[in-house]
Amino acid sequence: MSNKKTLAFYAASGCGGCSQSLMLSPSLAAMLEGVDIAFWATQGADLTSDDISGFDDKGIDVLIYAGPLHDESSIDTAKLLRRKAKRIVSYGACAHLGGLCGLTNVYPGAQLRALSKTDGEGFVQPLSAVIDVDYILPGCPPPEAMVTRMVEELFLSDDVPEIGTVFASSKGVCAECGREHVRNPLTAIRRFHTDPPDPSVCLIDQGYICLGPVTRGGCEAVCLRSNRPCTGCAGPVAGVLDQGGAILHALASLVSFSGDGNEEKEHQVLDSIPDVVGTAYKYSAASSLLKKRVNDGK
């Protein structure tokens, strides 16, 4: 019997970006040398529950799971995979946070892709809502530097990473951004396509909504280097539970502050923030503390 680790990749219905990001890692070749691949599959397409059942319990050393959970069958498969795998990596924003599909939890009738929701009850959940997850690799799709770190720590090193490791920075995106911080109050909300930002100054200081302060870094602030705001794909920074709530909290703290108890002006600025949930909870609605829309009278 080979002493190689057994690796499996499983993608529930997703866009294919996670699989690509893993395959394009410069350390892929090194990883493949050191592992036996049990399967490299997308939901239903390559292997059925029976096929998965055929593996020994804990027979897979590392399972990389990508994509959101959205119905009974994806939940059952996730539970089955949990039995078969010693370690599970929640890979990419959908598995980690619910991803962009999670906004469908808030807006009834919305569909990003044709997820086969079997009934009205189905809603998008992150993997960790259903099974214990050992490691997390954030990002939509995960950036190269983080993928490389995961490959190195999981497959190329003799040490086993501690359970709960997130293969990203423990600091926020701001720590990697490098833009100048000028501490302006927020007096009006600007949009980067109608009103392009100064590429050297903090976007929030210029009035753009950027999720950098509340989002886990490790991406080298890739979006900011393109002169665009961070949209939060890596999920909340360590210590924060609700990414959307945290950015709203931060923005409300930055409005120009009259302090006189007459907050009409401040409220006007806050009212002008467009698409609050789509902006603050873009990837994390399904893993937010509220999880989905409720019917609460008004």
């Binding site: 709203l248 703290s253 302090g259 409220h267 923030i273 609050v276 949930v277």
Partner: peptide, 25 residues
């Protein structure tokens, strides 16, 4: 120095998100 007002602004904005989630504010 106005922590109460900042707090109140935060609640004001959070309520906007809560309404989208269907919560009665």
């Amino acid at each position: 120095e106005g922590g109460n007002i900042k707090g109140s602004n935060r609640v004001y904005l959070l309520k906007r998100a809560l309404r989208e989630f269907g919560v009665n504010t």
